[in-house]
Simulated assay, not measured.
Amino acid sequence: MKTFTPKPNDLSHEWYVIDATDVVLGRLATTAATLLRGKNKPTFAPHADGGNNVIIINADKIALTGNKLGKNLYQHSGFPGGLRADSYGELLEKNPERMIRAAVKGMLPKNRLAKVQLNRLRIYRGDQHPHASQNPAVYEIAQVSQQAK
């Protein structure tokens, strides 16, 4: 049996929308990373960009388990003294998009292809998004947070 190598004509980029209401952050990030890489397709190849476009809505209604509200997300500007630490509790109120993007970025491979795949991720706070003309398919995450039940 020969190894399948996808050609540029074999690669397609579908659109998916994920509702993040009461979904645990890690479960959402793994699902989004799988879709961004294109691992749900039979034509998956780790070196080819066959990923999908992913839209995450209701980012402000995401669930965090355990004691993660006090955990910090660090960012450095590159300048001396430029370390910035924001707690997940603050980020959930002010900028939940940054928290989700950091979680998804950590689950993508550490190579040049990851930047291209991460650019296909779009995150919105509310349930409205401007990508309705692409007719995104709804991707349902069946298991929601136990605390939300």
Rank of each mutant, 00 (worst) to 15 (best):
Asn52Ala: 13
Met99Pro: 10
Leu118Cys: 07
Asp49Pro: 05
Gln75Phe: 09
Arg112Glu: 13
Ile57Pro: 04
Leu118Gly: 06
Ile141Gln: 09
Ala142Arg: 14
Gln117Tyr: 02
Asn67Ser: 13
His76Ser: 11
Glu97Lys: 15
Glu97Ser: 13
Leu69His: 10
Gly81Met: 06
Ser133Arg: 15
Asn53Ser: 07
His76Thr: 12
Leu113Arg: 11
Pro80Glu: 02
Leu64Glu: 06
Gly70Cys: 00
Arg98Gly: 07
Phe79Leu: 05
Val138Met: 14
Val54Leu: 08
Glu97Leu: 06
Tyr74Pro: 00
Arg120Leu: 11
Ala114His: 02
Ala63Lys: 01
Leu69Met: 14
Lys68Met: 13
Ala132Met: 10
Met107Ile: 05
Leu69Asp: 13
Ala142Gly: 01
Pro109Gly: 04
Gly81Glu: 02
Leu83Trp: 01
Arg112His: 07
Glu97Trp: 02
Gly66Lys: 08
Gln134Pro: 00
His131Val: 05
Leu121Gly: 09
Leu73Asn: 01
Gln134His: 15
Asn135Ile: 06
Leu92Arg: 14
Ile57Asn: 04
Ala102Leu: 04
Ile57Leu: 11
Leu83Glu: 07
Gln143Pro: 00
Gly51His: 05
Gln128Asp: 15
Ile100Arg: 05
Glu90Met: 11
Leu113Ser: 06
Gly89Gln: 11
Glu93Arg: 15
Arg98Trp: 03
Ala63Pro: 01
Lys94Trp: 05
Met107Glu: 04
Ala102His: 12
Gly106Thr: 06
Ala102Ser: 14
Pro109Lys: 10
Ile57Phe: 03
Arg112Cys: 00
Asp86Gln: 11
Lys94Pro: 01
Ala137His: 12
Asn58Ile: 07
Ala137Lys: 15
Ser87Trp: 01
Ser77Ala: 08
Glu140Ala: 11
Asn95Arg: 15
Ile62His: 04
Asn95Ser: 13
Asn53Ala: 00
Asn119Phe: 01
Ala102Arg: 14
Gly66Asn: 05
Ala59Met: 11
Ser77Gly: 07
Gln117Trp: 05
Val116Phe: 03
Arg101Lys: 15
Arg122His: 15
Gly126Pro: 11
Gly106Ser: 05
Ser133Asp: 15
Ser87Tyr: 00
Ile141Pro: 05
Leu83Tyr: 02
Gln117Asn: 10
Arg84Met: 07
Gly81His: 02
Ile123Lys: 09
Lys115Gly: 12
Gly89Lys: 09
Arg98His: 08
Asn67Glu: 14
Pro80Cys: 02
Ile141Ala: 05
His76Trp: 07
Phe79Thr: 04
Tyr74Cys: 00
Arg112Gln: 11
Lys68Gln: 12
Tyr139Gly: 01
Asp49Trp: 08
Arg125Gln: 15
Gln128Ala: 12
Ala59Lys: 05
Gln134Ile: 01
Ile141Ser: 09
Gly78Pro: 03
Pro130Phe: 12
Pro136Phe: 12
Gln143Thr: 14
Leu92Gly: 01
His131Met: 10
Asn135Gln: 14
Leu69Tyr: 08
Asp60Phe: 02
Lys110Cys: 01
Ala85Glu: 13
Ile62Thr: 10
Ile62Pro: 06
Ala103Tyr: 10
Ile56Pro: 08
Phe79Gly: 02
Ala102Trp: 04
Phe79Trp: 08
Arg101Glu: 15
Glu93His: 13
Ile55Gly: 04
Asn111Gln: 01
Gly66Gln: 06
Ile100Pro: 09
Gln134Ser: 14
Ala48Tyr: 02
Lys110Ser: 12
Glu140Asn: 14
